[in-house]
Design a protein around this nucleic acid. Structure first.
Lengths: 210, 210, 210, 210
DNA sequence: TATGAATGAGCATTCATTCAT
DNA sequence: TATGAATGAATGCTCATTCAT
């Protein structure tokens, strides 16, 4: 006779399972941010997560699966940030969010992680695929957003420029992550001045070609 | 009897030593670009360099020292490229050099390596220091270059904007490296259109505020 | 208040307990036959048995105890087969039963299991003891059976030869199990011819020495 | 400049390499015989071989390769024994060689190892292939040997019976190995009597059918 | 200078076993 | 009685580094 668990029990188990996965991912995120994907050991992660190394394997097939999950998490985070940024002073947003990163802040996309993840995309086809599909989706979102923010500028010029502008925004966004990593103490005023050299041209009305 | 080497012999030995170091660094560069700093093994490097693993330790104290040297080499390369780019159509240059990277092309800064190196700066203080000092120097060079290219625009506005513009160029340059890594097949026309949205504003005359 | 179980309940519990043990042993038999004693995991067995891994430990102290029980079961099976084979054409029986083994056929002694079990007897004194006592008992049974099948040949010669013949039958029987394992597709006609070279001399009347 | 090692040095290195492999195989043989293929750990083997665990991997790709090599070694040993046994009193030989096995006697086919190896053939296709090809070869050798020992009995009957007899010899040989494993203290006189019940019929002239 | 055999600590992963529920 | 999450020691294997030659 096999006991059929009541739905409530199943739900509780599911919740616990999800909580454990979250705990592991949080620990992994910290370890990866601190030491990199390869230098962080499963033992490190298990200690950070407050559990035995063996238990991790109940929730993730292997270390690679954890990396994949972190990659996905970082991508989701980036997507979320784009969404939140709609209808906001993007320049100010970029300035405000520069730096202030701490290793264990899971609510913030970790720039070192983003860089390592991007480098890894060069080698791991699964990561490459995840990253590419994310990037395309993100660019589409930016195109839409630019259209909405164009203040009724429905001229062909504005429409045509949107994809290029979206790409340029992406490049600047990513360049900022590199800078964050290499020069965390960068002067914010200088940064603000720098961004103001470029962003108005990208966000404002399309220049009349004539 | 201890042989006192004649100066010529010393010089020859020095040269040989330098040649060996170069050989190792070339091999290491390829291995690091292909597999990353951690995944590339000393054995891999020694095979690529056509020498025994033990011999590498006569020229570099340990693997970390090789990484340091590669970092320095990549920085030198980047510096060189800035110097060469003077008086050139920067926009076109950026477009032309996007992608086309091959793992064993030592004359070209490897974008995946740049990213991994930048992430490593987060963890290794020596690398952080090397990177920061390089970045500052580079920015100074860019400021000078912008001044020279300003076509005699010695107005206060132009002078004041230069540092911000230099920073912005740096950010765009680095953002391009991330893109190269994540989307190697990016459409060059779109890229050109994107850069043309921004670079004129950065490279051209300062806008009159009134 | 401690409930004093009524005899009927005790009997029912006993029966259930026996049923559970049987279920575990059946699962273990399949797993062991498929993967060997060491490669089969308790988790595998518990899945096959349709119960949790923890529950197995209510019925068996540890994995070794399961192996012991399987050994005993295989020995019982072999004993049973000898008993059944009485008064039958042994040669034909041996031929018919060669091969045709499937991993989950519990009614048939699994040859790979027999071999692994025999090898294990070399290492585990408990298994060695079980196997030895079984082998002696089996030989006695064979001696009796040979006497009965001797068709009243009560001459000293026949009596004296019985133990040797019994041993020889055992050796052949076991040799067949090895062959089954190493050459499952062995030609049955060749096998029949081989056995007919030997068995008549073993089963027939003792040769007159004069 | 890559040093080209002199032939003498190469030969010495080769010899050392072979010696190391031998040392590892000897240690592995002992460990496998004592604990079985799976229970013996690489650490056990490395201790027995008097070297570090890592070094083993310079000579064998992985544990499985060691098992394969041991299997091959045991097969070679068995082949050698057949060859040596030509023109000899086979019955006496079988009796003499029963038992006396010690775990670290590499010159003697270890019966427990043979059994485990045979069981493993059930699961590992590579071992199965090695074993099958060996068995066929061995049977051919036996057929030839029987022909030579037939004392000029070139009658069709003798020729026809040879393959069956060869198979039967193989079965008995393997049955003896099982017995050795399960009943190492078996009485030699009884064993001799048992073999004498069968072997004459197998080794002697073919019985006239009329 | 150069080799490459050797070391041993460290890694990802597995699994028999326990125990709170 | 039954579950299955949790443990942690052990395993096969890798690799930076050393050192006898």
């Amino acid at each position: 006779m096999i006991a059929v668990p009541r739905p409530a029990a199943v739900a509780a188990a599911d919740e616990r399972s999800r909580a454990q996965r979250t705990r592991i991912l949080k620990a992994a995120h910290q370890c990866f941010a601190e030491s990199g994907f390869h230098a962080a050991s499963m033992a490190d992660i298990s200690v950070r997560a407050g559990m035995s190394p063996g238990l991790i394997y109940r929730y993730f097939e292997n270390k690679s699966a954890i990396i994949q999950a972190i990659v996905q998490q970082q991508l989701d985070l980036a997507r979320e940030r784009v969404r939140v940024s709609c209808g906001i002073d993007l320049t100010q947003k970029m300035i405000d969010e520069f730096g202030n990163a701490s290793t264990d802040d899971e609510a913030k996309l970790n720039p070192a992680l983003l860089l390592e993840l991007s480098a890894e995309a060069t080698r791991d086809p699964q990561i490459a695929a995840a990253v590419q599909s994310f990037d395309h989706e993100l660019r589409s979102l930016l195109v839409e957003w630019l259209a909405r923010n164009g203040n009724g500028d429905v001229r062909a010029a504005a429409q045509a420029a949107a994809p290029a502008r979206a790409l340029m925004l992406q490049i600047i966004f990513e360049g900022l992550r590199v800078r964050e990593t290499r020069e965390p103490g960068l002067d914010r005023d200088l940064l603000a001045a720098a961004l103001r050299q470029c962003l108005p041209a990208l966000l404002g009305p399309a220049e009349s070609a004539g």
